[in-house]
């Protein structure tokens, strides 16, 4: 069996003032060993709750959860995994090094050099002797990452590891996570940074209101991309010729920007542009974006319609038409 995490019909129900509320519903997660797995969903979807169940911090109401081949919460498996909580906090009176040594002691590790090395690895080499109370958010997050590597874990749970970080810290942490995979670790990330997830994750699950909407390889989930053709000196009649359902065209001052599904070959359009005396500036294949899939998955809730599918609404189309009129 090559699953690092497996849940079957995992459900968590809370009693609230308005009755029973299922925060996690029949969740079937499958995270393979050695992959970076993105766990996505809007605020309140149940991501942190799921992670807490997987760590045994809380118990599921029903269903099954296995982590590293053992029931969730098993202390033996805790020796082989680690967790970076959402917005972590550390005892403020301690220095970065002291807190890392404290967490090390929970594994029975007394090796100070190991702690120093890990802090160097997360670029805290100059600051680990300062008290945490003087750390910026990014520095605290790095302490969190350092402590999460203490036991050389097979599996890492990172709950919003780049939340609130500046773009540079972002990229650093992203690269660090990619290295984790190179080192053979499994990484389970919950994140709202879809561009990060898209760049580093092998597979993702998207949940909404505690229920699984999508789970699979990113490449599979994001098939059905688009191709963007840009050309100059294009005549008006070309737009009429290609106008179709699944295609958007905009023409302004002779510049055409056409967006077509990647199931359609752009050759015909390119030929027509060139025959009509125009010149093709670029042909760019655009993968369907994770953002599109995400918005699709959680649509029907509270999102403004037009944003949902990435397709254009009538209003948008009207706006485009206007553009054409202006240009003619």
């Amino acid at each position: 069996m090559n699953l690092a995490i497996e849940t079957k019909k995992l459900t968590k129900t809370y009693k609230t003032s308005s009755g029973m509320q299922s925060v996690v519903k029949d969740l079937d997660l499958e995270v393979e060993k050695g992959e970076i797995f993105g766990f996505l969903g809007p605020n309140g979807a149940g991501k942190t709750t799921t992670i807490k169940i997987l760590l045994g911090i809380i118990d599921g109401t029903s269903g099954e959860a296995n982590v590293l081949g053992r029931p969730a919460g098993d202390i033996e498996s805790h020796k082989r995994l680690s967790y970076l909580p959402e917005k972590p906090y550390y005892y403020e009176h301690m220095t970065g090094l002291e807190i890392t040594q404290f967490y090390a002691s929970l594994f029975g590790i007394k090796d100070k050099d190991l702690c120093v090395n890990l802090l160097n690895r997360v670029n805290l080499g100059n600051d680990y002797n300062r008290p945490i109370s003087q750390y910026s958010k990014g520095m605290q997050q790095r302490v969190g990452l350092a402590q999460s590597l203490l036991n050389d874990p097979e599996l890492l749970f990172l709950d919003e590891p780049t939340g609130g970080l500046d773009p540079i810290a972002h990229i650093e942490i992203r690269d660090l996570i990619l290295k984790f995979r190179d080192e053979g670790r499994t990484v389970f990330i919950s994140s709202h940074e879809l561009s990060d997830v898209e760049r580093i994750c092998d597979r993702v699950a998207i949940i909404n209101k505690g229920e699984m909407v999508h789970q699979g390889r990113l490449d599979d989930l994001l098939s059905g991309g688009r191709i963007e053709v840009t050309a100059d000196g294009v005549a008006e009649n070309l737009v009429d010729k290609f106008k179709g359902d699944d295609m958007t065209l905009s023409l302004r001052a002779g510049r055409l920007i056409a967006d077509l599904p990647d199931t359609m070959s752009p050759n015909e359009m390119i030929d027509a542009i060139r025959t009509g005396g125009g010149s093709v500036v670029s042909v760019i294949p655009r993968r369907k974006r994770l953002e599109d899939l995400f918005l699709e998955s959680v649509s029907g809730d509270n999102l403004a319609k037009g944003r949902v599918t990435g397709k254009m609404t009538d209003d948008d189309k009207k706006a485009d038409v206007k553009e054409e009129e202006v240009s003619s």
Partner: peptide, 14 residues
Amino acid sequence: ERRTIYTILSKPVY
């Protein structure tokens, strides 16, 4: 409240 307990309980600590 400060969630320090989560990090600790995710370690091999009963």
